[in-house]
Design a protein around this nucleic acid. Structure first.
Lengths: 230, 230
DNA sequence: GTCTATAGATAGATAGAC
DNA sequence: GTCTATCTATCTATAGAC
């Protein structure tokens, strides 16, 4: 628990000269605040996180945090928008037009899995946001809502195209998308419960690979009109 | 902010004589508190609900609430245990032994959908509990954890039996169960977001029917070794 | 069993010095 | 841009009268 660290032992408030460990919290002060707040909001939700704790973890006073983000809601929204941006990046990219809707859908969901696996904060925060009425649904964050909508529209359009092209069974696309997202997010958001259930760390390479395979398998077996060629 | 509170307002705290509407909040005082807290916790989570609000909605003082439930965590746990009991009831019942594992699995999931549809609080509270580390995972509520485990064990055993009997494809049962639960819960927990996406009230008879059909369809097409006979 | 009163801590947010 | 000090409101929880 206490490695010697001979060169400069008794220096807990390290001067900003040599960052001993290349910790995650780097970059500008707003970025540091966003990183810290993202982790806390993802773990415990909007209401259960105090700005006192955020400020302490960043190494600032509460007032400094308020200087960068005028309200707690603003901070949450900034965190959310940053995460949605990272996810939209992987989803909204134009895919190879030579592929059919089914193949494109599979590719996009593979990218979605990768995007969610990139940080253990993304899925929990997104899942919370989608079903916590308080924070998002008050219509106060058009930016985040527009980003979310564009992602969902893209996915739903692909499903509808697949149905139209006869590649997918005639399913209620919105309903399927909703439940597919639920299963997708829940895996990465289920924390200790999920790890206990599946018996390995949620974000291990093996679990991510298995989850991607599950999502693809669901699309191929549960949605595709014809079973995959093997 | 300060309504005068005349002697007898329009009578919000209806006397227990004639229940004008057969409202949900009836029964003993602890039951009333549980009903109220359940709705609030489901909507906003543990940390964002104050006992002040619970007490106000019940029509009691905070102290009266504390008399029945010594701590806020105790109240949450009581709510959780009651919900898990209602769900386990539908899941742990012995099913017809003449049916194969696949048919039994489908029946149990149909009952699970019904159990979650019974109250709009069940799925949100359960979903929250499963991925909020704070409330449940501290190992302080063996009762709820044991109930949850028995439900999950039952479902997972059925999947494994189905695989063993050749009725289901050889899938990682825990992983599939996790994602299936995620999709199942998320539909009923997604609130305004879900209603906007699928375009109808989540708990409407049509949406419930559609969700049940989706779950069954997923099992039949995505898990069963052979496609269903039509 | 329910109440008022209160304790002690913390919440989000602001003022103003530096 | 960061700080200390402070504001007001609320938090969980307790004490004690009735």
């Amino acid at each position: 628990m206490n490695p010697p660290t001979p060169p400069t032992p008794p220096a807990p408030p390290a001067p900003p000269a040599a960052p001993a460990r290349p910790a995650r919290v780097q970059g500008s002060t707003p970025e540091k605040i966003l990183d810290t707040a993202e982790a806390l909001f993802a773990r415990r939700g909007f209401g259960s996180v105090g700005l006192r704790e955020v400020a302490r973890d960043v190494g600032l006073s509460k007032s400094a945090v308020f200087h960068h983000f005028p309200t707690k809601a603003d901070l949450y929204h900034a965190v959310l928008v940053r995460i949605l941006g990272g996810i939209a990046e992987g989803v909204l990219v134009e895919s190879d037009a030579r592929l059919g809707p089914l193949a494109r859908l599979i590719r996009i969901f593979e990218r979605l899995v990768d995007a969610l696996a990139e940080s253990p904060n993304r899925a929990p925060l997104l899942l919370r946001t989608l079903f916590e009425d308080d924070v998002v649904d008050d219509g106060m964050i058009p930016e985040a809502e527009a980003m979310l909508e564009s992602i969902l529209d893209r996915l739903r359009a692909l499903i509808d195209q697949g149905i139209g092209a006869g590649e997918l069974r005639d399913v209620p696309s919105a309903h399927v998308l909703q439940s597919l997202l639920g299963g997708l997010l829940f895996h990465f958001a289920s924390g200790e419960f999920g790890e206990e259930l599946i018996g390995e760390p949620t974000y291990s390479a093996a679990a991510i690979r298995r989850h991607k395979a599950f999502i693809v398998s669901f699309i191929e077996h549960g949605l595709a009109a014809r079973p995959p060629e093997r």
